[in-house]
């Protein structure tokens, strides 16, 4: 009897407090995140038609999904078109971004380089992220539009023709948007990678030094493999953010009249711009787009996790073989 009593009191009281402490998050999460998410699935099965202020709502099964994927008669696969645009913008920004971030992070964590004022560099690379995306977007537009300072200067130097206009070119627009993203977010990636690199045990580098490894070998054979979890985090969060890309393309080169059409010729319209275009007039289709976007995000994330885990396993397997041999 005497033995049991204190045990019971101990276990009950602690778990109770634990639950209490995490409850606020879960309540807010269920109310403001999970519930809207589930209702989005529900709304996506209804057809909303608003004409002259009269709205009719009808259950339509998977029709919304068929429509946006272009599977229904006379419908276009806008979802796929805009997904392609979004991926193009994301990939063009992510590859250079992660390369530059790796380089800067490697420099800033290199003990032999003995860089001074590392803190100042970290602040500087993060700076672009402080300005709101909307302002940057409008700033770039003002700089690069046909009669903006950049084009005017190039024109007066005779480097471009009198009618040349970056805004009418699909690739110029895409590259500019990607550049803005790259410029805004490489600092963030750099900081994450620095954190990852500082977590690597310095004795590994010392051992590599003793073995006569070059900086390059240390980077590719010590830093990169051990940085994988952080790289994965950067990749997944970037992919999720990238798929939801909205503010910069929505303000950079869009059609007049607020239709959220990414110029030129609808080639810089992202999925989220499409959702925003639809959400007030056609809730059902906007919900269907959101759900598909969620599924795609899920798939991409799962693939990343799988790829990295397999890689891990193979590495271990390989090592084991070596030992065995």
């Amino acid at each position: 009897m005497n033995k049991e009593k204190p045990q019971r009191i101990k276990s009950v009281s602690y778990s109770k407090y634990g639950l209490l402490f995490i409850a606020p998050f879960f309540i807010a999460y269920i109310l403001f995140s999970l519930w809207p998410l589930l209702s989005t699935f529900y709304y996506s099965f209804f057809e909303y038609v608003t004409r002259n202020l009269k709205t009719t709502v009808e259950f339509c099964g998977l029709q919304n999904y068929k429509n946006i994927l272009g599977l229904a008669d006379g419908e276009r696969a806008y979802f796929l078109t805009y997904l392609g645009n979004t991926l193009r913008l994301w990939i063009l920004n992510f590859i250079p971004q992660v390369l530059l971030a790796l380089l800067i992070a490697a420099w800033l964590t290199d003990n032999r380089a003995r860089l001074r004022a590392k803190g100042a560099y970290k602040v500087l690379v993060y700076m672009p992220n402080i300005i709101t995306a909307a302002s940057i977007s409008l700033l770039f537009y003002a700089l690069l539009c046909k009669f903006g300072p950049v084009m005017s200067t190039l024109r007066s130097w005779g480097l471009v023709g009198s009618s040349s206009d970056l805004m009418t070119s699909k690739w110029a627009t895409s590259l500019t948007i990607s550049f803005i993203l790259f410029w805004m977010w490489y600092g963030n990636s750099t900081l994450l990678l620095i954190a990852g690199m500082m977590g690597i045990n310095p004795s590994l580098y010392e051992a590599a030094d003793i073995d006569g490894a070059t900086s390059r070998q240390k980077f590719f054979h010590v830093t990169l493999p051990l940085l994988k979890p952080v790289l994965l985090y950067v990749l997944v969060t970037s992919a999720i953010g990238g798929l939801q890309l909205y503010d910069i393309p929505a303000l950079y080169n869009t059609g007049a009249g607020g239709g959220l059409i990414g110029l030129p010729n609808d080639t810089s319209t992202t999925i989220t711009m499409y959702i925003m275009r639809l959400h007030s007039s056609d809730t059902g289709r906007a919900a269907a787009v959101s759900v598909l976007l969620f599924i795609i995000t899920l798939i991409i994330s799962l693939i990343f996790f799988r790829v990295f885990r397999e890689d891990d396993g193979r590495g271990r397997h390989h090592k084991g073989k070596k030992v065995g041999a």
Binding site: W90, F94, Q97, A134, V234, G241, Q244, L245, I248
Partner: peptide, 11 residues
């Protein structure tokens, strides 16, 4: 979403 490439900027 403090994501690396672009925040989930639905603003």
């Amino acid at each position: 979403s403090g994501s690396a490439a672009a925040s989930a900027s639905t603003s």
